[in-house]
Amino acid sequence: MDNDWFRANDKGYSRPTARSRELRRNTTEAERRLWQQLRNRQLRGKRFNRQFPVGQFICDFACREQRLIVELDGGHHAHVLDYDLRRTQFLEAQGYRVIRFWNNEVMENIEAVLMRIGEALDNRPSPGPSRRREGSLWSRSLRSRGSI
């Protein structure tokens, strides 16, 4: 499969926050629907961020406290399994657990999706009292090289 989808989405952003903002403005219906259920600590009292950057990747939803990433996949993901596998491996190497849902799962049975996310939150112990900001792997790697 050719990677036109990825090239079309790579607009040369120098900072992941600019791309995150654009993605938040252009969400899918499934993302909007799930966000309405996750925002404002509505699920298990946990805070979620949407379009959250981790390294070079931008994740649909992230609960940083529990190091849980929730990804919603549309039909095009059936053709990019290698990319999704590499992405998941990177995120897991950063200490996150990744769970994935198809968009139609959210649209047809959001209660089951929320139940599975809740179970994932319940099965992941809180990392403790550390207040270290997470997700900024890009700046952390620059700091370790002495660039900033």
Rank of each mutant, 00 (worst) to 15 (best):
R64T: 01
Q66S: 07
I148H: 10
L72K: 02
Q66Y: 04
D2V: 14
R133W: 00
Q56A: 14
L68V: 04
C59G: 06
Q42N: 05
R145L: 15
G128Q: 08
Q66P: 04
R97S: 06
R132P: 03
E119H: 12
D10K: 10
R67M: 01
R24F: 09
V80E: 15
I148E: 05
R15H: 14
N3K: 12
R131C: 01
L38C: 09
R145I: 11
E108V: 07
L114D: 03
Q89M: 08
L38T: 07
E31Y: 14
I58S: 02
S147W: 14
F101Q: 03
C59Y: 14
S141Y: 05
R24Q: 14
G45Q: 05
E65L: 00
I117G: 01
C59T: 13
W102V: 07
L81N: 14
E105Q: 04
F48Q: 00
A93Y: 05
P16L: 08
A93W: 10
L85F: 13
R7T: 15
A62M: 01
I58A: 04
L72W: 02
R44M: 09
D122G: 13
R24T: 10
R41D: 13
R143M: 07
R140M: 06
L43M: 07
R87N: 01
E111D: 14
A112H: 09
N9I: 12
G55Q: 06
F61G: 00
H76V: 13
M115T: 11
R39T: 08
Q66L: 08
R47S: 00
R87W: 04
F48S: 05
F61L: 08
R132H: 00
G95H: 00
D82M: 10
G146Y: 12
S139H: 13
R133M: 13
D122L: 08
S141P: 02
L81G: 12
R41I: 06
A30V: 02
D60E: 01
S139G: 04
D4P: 09
D84E: 15
R132E: 02
Q89D: 15
E31A: 07
E108G: 09
R64N: 08
F48R: 08
L38H: 03
D73F: 02
S144R: 15
I148S: 10
T17V: 13
Q36P: 02
D122N: 15
E92K: 03
R33T: 08
N109V: 08
R124S: 02
D73K: 10
V80G: 13
V54Q: 00
D2Y: 09
N49G: 08
N26A: 09
W102Q: 11
A18C: 11
Q37Y: 11
T17M: 12
R132S: 02
Q36G: 13
R67T: 02
